[in-house]
Design a protein around this nucleic acid. Sequence first.
DNA 1: ATCCTCCCCTAC
DNA 2: TAAGGTAGGGGAGGAT
Length: 980
Amino acid sequence: MLKYGGRFENYFSRHHVTHIICSNLPDSKIKNLRSFSGGLPVVKPTWVLESVAANKLLSWIPYQLDQLASETKKQPKLSAFGFKSGPVLDDLEESISGQAVPQSGIATLRTSCSLEANIFGKAECTEEVEECHSVSDDPFHPNAAESADQAPTYCMENHCEVELDAAVVVQSDAGYHSHISPCQDPKSDHNDCLEDHIIEESSSSKTIRPSTTGHSTLSDANFVENYFKFSRLHFIGTWRNRYRKRFLSSANGFKDMNPSRNAFATSQKTTIIHVDMDCFFVSVVIRKHSDLKDKPVAVCHSDNSRGTAEISSANYPARNHGVKAGMFIRDAKALCPQLVILPYNFDAYEEVADQFYDILHKHCNKVQAVSCDEAFIDVTDLRVEDPELFARAIRTEIHETTGCTASAGIAGSMLMARVATRIAKPDGLCYIPSEKVDDYLHELPVKALPGIGHVLEEKLKKKQINTCGQLRLISKESLQKDFGVKTGDMLWNFSRGIDNRLVGVFQESKSIGADVNWGVRFNDLNDMKDFLLKLCKEVSLRLQGCGLKGRTITLKIKKRRSDAGEPVKYMGCGDCENLSRSVTLPMATDDVDVFQRITAQLFGYFHIDARDIRGAGLQASKLESADRNMRGHEKYSIRSWLVSSPARKSSMAKGKGDQLYSDIGPPVQARGSFSGGEAYVAHRATLPALHDLDVGVIESLPPEVLSEINDLYAGELISFISKKKEKNAGNNVMDEEQSLSNPLVPPNKDFVHNVAEKIKSSEKEDEQYINKMIQGLPETSGSVTALLPETDSLMPSSLSQVDSSVLQQLPEELLADVLESLPAHRRPDFMSNDVYLDHIRDQTGAIDFLPSNNLWVGNPPRWVDNFRLSSCQLLNRIAVLYNKSSPRGQFSSVLQLIMSEYPLDDGGDDAVNCLCELMKQYIKLKIETDVEEIYTCSCLLRRLTSRSELFLQVYNCIIPHLQAAVGETYGGDLNICFIE
DNA sequence: ATCCTCCCCTAC
DNA sequence: TAAGGTAGGGGAGGAT
C-alpha cells in the first residue's frame, strides 16, 4: 500500500469510498490506511478471501490501461453517441479525463461490493472496526504471523509434555490435571495418596481455571487446540503418524536377522506372532506402582463419580467387577465403588510404545504396527526353531523394559495369530498350529473376528449366526448377497481361518483429517466460521507435517436430530445425522486459505442452523506428496501451454489471431515453473517457430510472462521482436504519435501498435477491416467487437461476441438494429437466447431466464479432472450444465475451479457473455438469501482478472451490476474498495 | 464397466 | 461436568 503513496487520498475521495474492506494487511498497515483515507472505517473480517498477490495483479494493469487509453482515444465523448448513463460509461468517461487514471493501476483495484450491510449491519460502522481488531487478535487468523509456531497436538514430535506444561504455566490454566499426574512422581506410592492427589487436582483445577476456557466451542476460544491435547482418541488416531516418522523414516533400530534365508521363504510355512500389550493405558500408568496392580484401576479424564466421563481402559481386577472401556464413570463406580481412577499420561504411553517397538524391531525386520500397543511380526524368515520360545523371550523383554505385560498369539496367519492373542490374554501366550484352526474357530463368537463389529454381529444374530461354526454353514454367494461382495468374501474366508494378508506391507496415507465431535456448540454462524477456520488450520498443518497435499476436501457435519434432546453425555454430540460433502480440486493443496474457502462453500450446501451443529470434521484425500505436486505443476507451465495445445498456439500465431487480446496466456501460477537449461534443450524443438508467433500478441503479454517465454526461446524472442519492430517502424508512425500523446500508454504495450502489427501480418480482408475501423467505425459496438476481424461486415458475427453490458447501454433503437441484423444461424446455442431474452425481458418483463432456481455447480464433472479445457470450453460446459440445472451447488465453486487450475487463455466473447449472464442471474437469485456467496463469487472473479482478459471483461461487466443489486436489496449505496 | 460421492462400519 | 479421533474399506446409487 505504501508503494502507492499519496495517490490513495485522491482515490478515496474521488470514489466516494465509505468503507474499506481489507483482507490481508497487518494491523500497522491498516493504521496507515485509515490515516490515508481520512479515518474511514476499516473492516477486516475473517471471511474475506485472501487477495491475489499484488505483483500478479499489477502485472496486468499496464495491459488494461492500454486498452482503456486506446478506446478512449477513439471514443472521446461517449455520451454524444447516445449511450445510456451507467457504470460502463462512467468508467470510460473517467478514464478519458486522463489524470484520473493513475498509472499505478489503482483503477483496476477499484471495485464495489457492500456486504457489511448484511454481515455486520451497516449502521454500526464503529463496531465494525472493533470487530476488526478482535479478529486480528485471533492466533489462527491468517494475519497472525506467529500462529504457525503455535501448532498444537502430538503430530509434531515428542514434545508434548514440555509444551503442555509450558502452557499450564504461561496461561495459568490448571485445567490440564491429567498431565500433572501423580504417577510421574515416584514418591507417591500409596493408593490413597494417589486418589487424594487426583481429587485435589481435579478440584483445584475447577477453582483456578480462568473463565475464558471451558468445555465447549462456546466458552473456550482455543477449544480445538486444547481438545486435541486432551483427547485419548486423538492420541490413538495420530499415533501411527508419529510411529512412521520415528521408525520407518530411517533404518534406525532395524535389524535383519537372517537376510540370506529370504530365498527359502516361499517354501517355508508362514509364522506370524501377534503381540498386544495388556490394558495398555492402565498398565502404563501404574507400571511403577506394584501395589496397584491387584486393585481395580481405570483410566479416565474425570474422577467425578456422578459424571459421564468415559472409562478408557480398565485393568483386569476392574474388569472382574464388570468395568469396561467405554463405560461412564458413574456406571463403573456403581459397579465397583473402590475403583481407582487415574488420569491419562500420554507421554508415558508414547514412551512405552517406543520401547515396545524398539524391542520388536530389534528382533524382527517384518513388523506391522497396528497401534501403539499392538503389532504383528512375521518371523517366517527368521526360521526360529521354536516360535513359542521366541515369543516368550519377546514378552519377557517387553515386561522387563516397560514394566507392562504383553500377550502374544502365534499362528500361520494374521487372523489366527490375533485369535490366539485373544485366547492368551491376559499376560499369556497361545499358539494355534494350522491343524488346530478349526477347533479354535468352531465355537468362536463371530464378533471375535476382525472386521465384525456390533452392526455386523447384530445382522448375523438375526440370521441365527453366533459362532464361526454357524457362519461356515452359509454359502459364499449368500453371504455376498446379504453383505456385499467383499464383506461376504471376508466372512466366508475368516470363518474358515483363511487370511492371505501379509505382514508389514507399508501403506501410504490415503487421507488426513481432523474431527471434533465433542463440546461443539454454536450460537450463530460466525461461531461456526471461526471453528471451521481452526479445523482448516489444523488439517493444513497436519498435511504439511506429512509433506502432503490433498485434492479432495471433505467436510463432515454432525447435525442434531430434530427429535434428540441434550445428549446423555456431557457436551457429547448425542444422536446426530451425519452429513458430508466433498469437492475435488484438480490441484492438490495444503493451503489453509484454500481450505477455508472450500470449507465455507461446502458448509453452505448444508443449509443448517448453527445451533444444531454437534460436530464437524475436515478431511483431505487424494493425497499427493508436496514434492510430486510441484512437479505436477509443470503440467500447467507456459512451456506445456506453448507446446501442447495447437488450438491455443494458433491464436498466438500470426495470421490466425481471431482476437488480438484474447490469448492472454496461461495462469500466472505457472511462472517460474521451469527455467533450467535442460528443460530448454529438451523442449525447444517442440516450441512454435519464432516467425510463427504474432508479435502483437506476444508483446501484449504481461512482462513476466513475456520474460518466461523469452527464456523458452533462449532470449531470442526479445531480439526477434525488436528486429520486427524496426522493420515495421516506417509503417507505424501513427502508433508512435498516439503513444507519445498519451502518457498512460506504456510504449511497449501500445494497442494501436498491435493493430498495426496486425495489419502487417494479416491477410487482405483483415487489412480491409482495419482500414474501415480506422476510417470511422461506429463506436457503438464497443471495445470487444472493435477487435474482431470481420471480413464482410462491420457487425459482430454473433451477439456472443458483444460485451453485453455495453450492449445494454446502447440507445434502444440501435440495440434493436443490432439484434435484428444478426444472422440467427450464427448465434451460439446457449448464448444468443440469453441476450435475446435480456432484450425481450426489457420489453415484456415476462420471460424468466432461469429454468429453475437451482444452479448447477457442486463437484466438477469428470471432464474437469481429465482435461485441460480452454476457459471458453469450460464456460460453455458450465452454461450447458447450468441450464440442465441439477439441484445443488454454488457458483463460487465453479469460479474456484476455474481459478485454481484452468489455463485462462482463449476465453473468447462467448465465454465472457456466458459468464456475465450466469453471474447476473446468479446475483439476482442469491442476493437476498446468500449475499456472502455472491461476495465470494465477486472476490474470486476479481482474482481472476489478474489472470485473464476474459475475466477482466466479466468483472467489469458484473461489478456495476452487483453494486446495483446490493443497493437495491439492502438500500445502501456504499462504495467499498478492496485493497491488496 | 468403471468411477465418484456420500454414506456406514470397523479398528485401535 | 469432560475432552465421542483417525483412517481405511466397502456398499449403494448415480454419473460418465
